[in-house]
Design a binder for these strands. Structure first.
Lengths: 349, 349
DNA sequence: GTGAAAGCGCTAACAC
DNA sequence: GTGTTAGCGCTTTCAC
């Protein structure tokens, strides 16, 4: 039903090739009159190029697939990452597609065909940060899929943030303000389950501890034995804050809001009585106002992921060296407020 | 470079058609021996089907494009929506691709070709919730792109949540608990800029007001003249809470955290001294613990969006009646805690 | 300057 | 049961 080059050629009284050339910027040689006729017919018919046909001819797919877990209920896909990927891929005339590895048994060859068809791409970006099934690694190897892992600290073929640097950056900011009692808070993992968790939990704490020791300060890590769920975080925060001289600075991997609230109940105000640094993909404003944020630039991560994948596709190289992304400290500088992208007020929440 | 059916046929000593049929579940007629040889060669060579070629043959593109704004710095793409779209499209052997309408002048035909190639799809899902450029509507019309608008309340070809119902649901929950002084809080829009904002701002307030009046209660809307930025919300919350007998219930479109904090500073605890309802795409846990949430089921919105788009593509119908999605109240029931999907603790934040 | 021929990988239709 | 033919929309090559 869609318009084809052939139909344009008929309308413009020329050959299909002429149309193709004119529309692909190779029409310099043609008479202006010819070009005009072609462009006019193209516009009039509302012609849309058929990417599939072009890709078939070119022997490529024209797209890259972002592979995610089916288990991600929560957003594991920052808009910045999506944007960075999409825009850098578009510059190479590649589309970004989305796929998941379902739970079904992947032994049925018929089912595998269906899945591979959906994955059909020039390359794969794997967005599992942890807990990726062995089966997927097997599939990637078996089908020689050019793949890059995002947010994964592997030996090769990956792009990930330098989380030790992120931890250092956070601590150094507070140390630089002359604070001494600086706590590192994380409720996401406990000491007992830390090892099975994402490396960033350990690495950011490690960076914090390094910075503290370098400054001659005693690290102060607030971490329970096990993961603290959202509903328990306030109580836990209040408990440890009761027992101590309250911190002058807090580096929060998670639980920042419960610390803020527990401090407020004790009459201690963020920005006045203590400082906080959080980690995020963008500058953060908490309930008490903006806070210093160690920004993990997801946009750049996406761009670098694209670059790595393209290199992998081009070079057919077996293994690519890991790429690390440096985090950046974003201050809650009031002067910056204007530039800070506020949550767009007119969008639905 | 990728493996083709032809190569498999050579290895399996048969024709390309035999391979195609066996791999596409149409191989019942073939001798088991033949099928075995084909499947063996397929596996050994690591064959991946070429979706582009199949799509070319079928006269379709095999994918649907999700069109987003370049201006979305903040996540406007809930994971649930993505998941619902992706999964329902996969059931129809369609891939989901992403694209954006860039700011560049869209007058250059060469540039337009490039863009249309990236948008190349059987249909388009428009994810602009507001502020979509007129140029895009023109493009959709000119190129007869089968399009469905998501989260937009239009006259036709759209799928969006019933936000009046959402507002009602929130208020009725608190009214049902026997509360009287129930405030509706929104800092995202002010009275003066409400009209240019997303319809959900007005609609949820409208639903709240309806429910209040139905119950013989006085609506109490907290809204400033203009948008209140994140850094000012706490101060604003403290100001209006100072002047009044504090509310027993709060319906928060936005600013929930600043209200929670302001109340805490006054010694009023969420769940003990007052109740709150918020709107989200999933059950929400605030710093004080879980709260009742009016859940806008984005997953279902995605599924319905797919259904509508497929119908639009199939039927070539000019205009499809709008589809509304009903919100659901999710209680902060402790019994439900187990089922509540906590933010996965092992992911990077 | 323009167009005819060939072929990309795949599959519907039909022949044997 | 298996293979042959033709053709999807597009572009590379090369002839006129």
């Amino acid at each position: 039903m869609p318009v084809t080059l052939k139909q344009i050629a008929e309308q413009a009284n020329c050959s299909v090739m002429t149309v193709s050339n004119v529309l692909n910027n190779k029409g310099d040689m043609y008479r202006p009159e010819m070009r005009r006729r072609v462009l006019e017919a193209t516009k009039r018919l509302g012609y849309r190029p058929n990417a599939a046909a072009r890709a078939t001819r070119a022997g490529r797919c024209g797209n890259v697939t972002l592979l995610s877990s089916v288990h991600d209920e929560q957003s594991n896909l920052p808009t910045g990452l999506l944007g960075g990927l999409q825009e850098s891929l578009a510059q190479h005339d590649l589309r970004l597609s989305f796929a998941r590895l379902p739970d079904e048994k992947l032994t049925d060859p018929q089912y595998m065909m269906k899945l591979l068809r959906l994955w059909s791409a020039d390359g794969i970006l794997v967005n599992y940060t942890h807990g990726y099934p062995l089966r997927m690694i097997e599939l990637i190897e078996q089908y020689r899929l050019p793949a890059i892992w995002l947010n994964c600290r592997l030996e090769y073929d990956c792009v990930f943030p330098d989380d030790v640097a992120a931890g250092r950056l956070a601590a150094e900011h507070l140390i630089g303000k002359g604070l001494n009692r600086i706590a590192f808070v994380d409720y996401a993992a406990g000491w007992k389950d830390l090892d099975q968790m994402h490396y960033s939990l350990k690495d950011r704490q490690e960076g914090y501890e390094q910075a503290m020791r370098d400054a001659g300060l005693e690290p102060w890590v607030v971490r329970e034995d096990y993961h603290v769920s959202g509903s328990d975080r306030l109580a836990v925060s209040q408990r440890w804050l009761e027992d101590c001289d309250p911190p002058q600075g807090v580096v929060a991997y998670s639980g920042a809001q419960s610390v803020e609230l527990a401090m407020a109940v004790r009459g201690r105000q963020l920005g006045r009585d203590y400082d906080m640094v959080v980690f995020a993909d963008r500058r953060i404003t908490m309930a008490s106002g903006p806070v210093a944020t160690v920004v993990i630039p997801q946009w750049r991560l996406g761009e670098q992921g694209t670059a790595a994948l393209l290199q992998k596709i081009e070079s057919q190289q077996a293994r690519l060296a890991p790429v690390t992304i440096q985090p950046e400290l974003a201050l809650p500088d009031p002067e910056d407020e204007g530039r800070q992208k506020e949550k767009d007020p007119s969008r639905p929440s």
